[in-house]
Design a protein around this nucleic acid. Structure first.
Lengths: 242, 242
DNA sequence: CGGGAAGTTGAAGCCAGTCAAGATTTGTGG
DNA sequence: CCACAAATCTTGACTGGCTTCAACTTCCCG
């Protein structure tokens, strides 16, 4: 049985902007179902023209593109509250793929109803714009990382941002998150080889800036890690939840 | 005297989605003025909280971020029809700067009126989402370029995409565009050193894939250049014009 | 207990960065 | 209109951070 939006566990989190009961009811009507998938399942495919939009309720995923030469670029990591499939709805087709990294639960919406929904709910249109602008901000930072930072700075940056997102979602206990990511995912996100990513992680571990064992990431001091990365710690901004 | 939207030279171009006369009138009321700046002028600053939104009417610019260590990452190039300052309107502040590379003319809108405007014009909300999703698509491709492609592929990719955008705007004559970009801009966009960018451009010139002299870029055969870059030629999609 | 996926470590080579100097173009004031 | 300065482009030589190749370890699951 699908979760009622009013009972959505995410809405209780401080990081999400509250909605009025009426607004929640509207979301409930827009929602057409729920999808649960296992780790490793593709959710949206590059080049496809999916009929659905999703919001992540539970679980972690990755967005990635594949080049003609068979290499893979991880664009971003997907966390609960993220909105998936907008590109496929607004443009002709998806330009990246999304795959589950853990078991995931997704709220499903009909793409064909999107325009009508926006028309009647301008606040939600604004929320979508917010999400999109935020994604753009992140990608700009990622681009700067790949273009201008050393491997050491890049890895520190990526671990920091992952940790910060998890923290906002209350997934951090004892300065530790469980994230089912492989070193290969991180390497592909940063444009580094697996070998070099591994060696860089080792150095960061050695110097006690991070812990990364067995899918558990520890950051004892985000300020110190931010310093290694050459960036500022980013305070979690309240975000809208669709 | 500010140009009336009904007489906007961009609207005549095939690449922009037509608007009804009434829609154009609404845009005209939203527009509060026009801004003309010289090459080199900063238009929006990273970290600032600008009160204005812009649409580019004429001229070329660059978006870029600066790192703490003083390096510069060019995020994207700005062309006529582009919408500027959305991030500053929706989020707390701009996360990148925008600077004119040629003399530019911009249509000015009030940021404070944006929400009301969206509310009353859901088609425009959809257009903003479209623009944002398209930017996201581009940034994903840029990320893939920096992360996975060689210098030769990267430079070919960048020149190709610049050329394609210019072509859609009717700026290409005899397979040539005039773009007031320095090699340093291209280098900073691709995360390459100026020296290596220069040498790579030389090779592409030698092999007749491109011409780049004196701010004039020539691409005799986009398909061949796309082949070097390892990407597909991207057909110009019709885009909304605010 | 065997096999595959993920992580670890060492060694060798190269792509791209850095340093340096000169050529060419552009701008500016006398 | 010339002279000088500043910006941009070009080319060569050297260096090093990261990639690639390869082997080994650890962990898990049937």
């Amino acid at each position: 049985m699908a979760t009622k939006c009013a009972r959505c566990p995410l809405r209780r989190l401080e990081m999400f902007v509250p909605m009025s009961p009426e607004e929640v009811r509207v979301m409930d009507r827009f929602k057409v179902g729920e999808l649960t998938v296992d780790a490793g399942t593709p959710i949206l495919q590059e080049g496809s023209n999916a009929l659905q939009l999703f919001t992540v309720l539970r679980g972690i995923g990755i967005r990635y593109k594949t080049t003609e030469s068979g290499r893979r670029q991880v664009i971003n990591f997907v966390f609960p509250g993220d909105f998936l499939g907008l590109q496929g709805s607004v443009r002709e087709e998806m330009t990246h793929s999304i795959e589950a990294r853990s078991k995931m639960t997704l709220c499903v919406f009909n793409r064909s109803e999107l325009f009508g929904f926006i028309k009647n709910n301008p606040e939600r249109a604004y929320d979508i714009i917010w999400a999109c602008a935020t994604e753009e901000h992140f990608l700009g930072e990622a681009l700067t990382t790949l273009g201008q930072r050393t491997a050491m700075e890049s890895v520190a940056w990526a671990v920091l941002r992952l940790f910060e997102r998890a923290e906002g979602l209350g997934l951090v206990e004892n300065a530790t998150v469980e994230l089912p990511l492989r070193q290969q995912d991180l390497a592909d996100a940063l444009g580094l080889s697996l070998v070099h990513t591994n060696k860089t992680l080792s150095k960061l571990r050695e110097r006690q800036f991070i812990g990364w064992t067995d899918g558990h990431i520890t950051v004892p001091d985000t300020a110190k890690l931010a310093d290694v990365a050459g960036v500022e710690v980013e305070a979690a901004q309240p975000r809208p939840l669709m």
